[in-house]
Simulated assay, not measured.
Amino acid sequence: MMGRTHALSGLALFTAGTYPLHLPADQIAIGAVVCAGAAVLPDIDHHGSNIARTFGPITRGFAWTIGKMSGGHRNGTHSALGVGLVAALVFLSSSVYTRDLITLQIGCGITAAMLVVGVLIGLLPTKGKGRRAYKERWHGFVSIIVCAMAATAIAVSCYRYGHQAGAFLVGGILVLVLAAAIRPLAIKGIWDDLAPIPIAFVALWYHVDLSVMPYAIVIGVVIHIVGDMITLGGCPIGWPWSQTMFGPKWFKTGSRIERRIVAPILVAVLGLGVVVHVYPELSDRARTFRASSLQR
């Protein structure tokens, strides 16, 4: 799918899907925006994607590195293992920032579950294993070493600096997902890229409740993968154990089906989600107003 469709899918599905949870209004708003950005996040494996162009050479270089480590576009970042690694990072960051051990335990559980899913799907008997995970075998070993070094650096930083390290990680993640959410709006100038920085700073400075953020990010990444699975390319859910591209593969990315059928459906879902969240509040206010009017 195209970037704006991914963002719209995250925004719409989170807004509508969280209705049974009865979350506070601020958590719904924060989660919906974060989920919209996270629904674009897996495309950070391509240096030409919208999210890679957000902060110029910085994000382009980061995207190039992620692309090499994950084996190219629609490879590692579009797999169950990729979801697990994202969950480990965002839940660890949130746990250190909020000093909440339960958040860390939930993140570990999601990571373990995604690892099991990836291995099981990778072991499924298929006619072919698809393209190779890496062009050269040594690329895989280098990726493992880089990931191990990054994990060690994050763990040492969290152990040594505690809450400050958590705030730094949460702030960086928040800036990235907000930039990914805002960029599809195609705002003229540089405001779409710069806006996430002061927003994230204010959120951290005033201790805004960001407890919904790790959940919204993982949900957004999963929504992205499901969205790409229904396009012709599919996704290698069992990567790196299998590179078979799974999915119904109904239509081509950017096709008329996506623009004229999928996008309008998502807009309708978003509208429905807003209505079901807002209507009870408006109904309660209307009843209160009528009751006060009768008492007069």
Score class of each variant (00 low, 15 high):
residue 3 G to S: 10
residue 8 L to D: 02
residue 9 S to P: 01
residue 10 G to M: 05
residue 12 A to D: 00
residue 13 L to G: 04
residue 18 T to C: 10
residue 18 T to A: 08
residue 20 P to C: 02
residue 26 D to L: 13
residue 34 V to S: 08
residue 37 G to Y: 10
residue 45 D to Q: 07
residue 45 D to Y: 02
residue 47 H to F: 10
residue 50 N to I: 08
residue 52 A to K: 06
residue 56 G to T: 06
residue 59 T to Q: 07
residue 63 A to G: 00
residue 67 G to I: 02
residue 73 H to F: 06
residue 74 R to C: 00
residue 78 H to F: 01
residue 83 V to H: 09
residue 84 G to H: 02
residue 85 L to C: 10
residue 89 L to I: 10
residue 90 V to W: 07
residue 91 F to A: 08
residue 91 F to H: 08
residue 95 S to A: 15
residue 99 R to P: 01
residue 105 Q to E: 06
residue 107 G to T: 01
residue 108 C to V: 01
residue 112 A to G: 04
residue 116 V to G: 03
residue 124 L to T: 07
residue 126 T to K: 15
residue 130 G to R: 11
residue 132 R to Q: 10
residue 133 A to H: 11
residue 135 K to G: 13
residue 139 H to F: 09
residue 140 G to T: 04
residue 142 V to C: 08
residue 143 S to L: 05
residue 148 A to V: 00
residue 153 A to R: 09
residue 154 I to S: 07
residue 156 V to W: 12
residue 158 C to P: 04
residue 165 A to W: 14
residue 165 A to T: 06
residue 170 V to D: 05
residue 175 V to R: 02
residue 176 L to A: 10
residue 179 A to S: 12
residue 179 A to T: 02
residue 182 I to C: 00
residue 188 K to V: 11
residue 194 L to A: 15
residue 201 F to C: 06
residue 207 H to S: 07
residue 210 L to E: 06
residue 214 P to H: 15
residue 215 Y to E: 04
residue 216 A to H: 11
residue 224 H to W: 04
residue 225 I to W: 13
residue 225 I to Y: 09
residue 226 V to Y: 15
residue 229 M to L: 11
residue 233 G to Q: 11
residue 239 W to K: 11
residue 248 P to F: 14
residue 251 F to Q: 01
residue 257 I to N: 03
residue 258 E to D: 01
residue 266 L to S: 09
residue 273 G to D: 03
residue 273 G to A: 01
residue 275 V to A: 12
residue 275 V to R: 09
residue 278 V to D: 07
residue 281 E to P: 02
residue 293 S to Q: 10
residue 295 Q to Y: 15
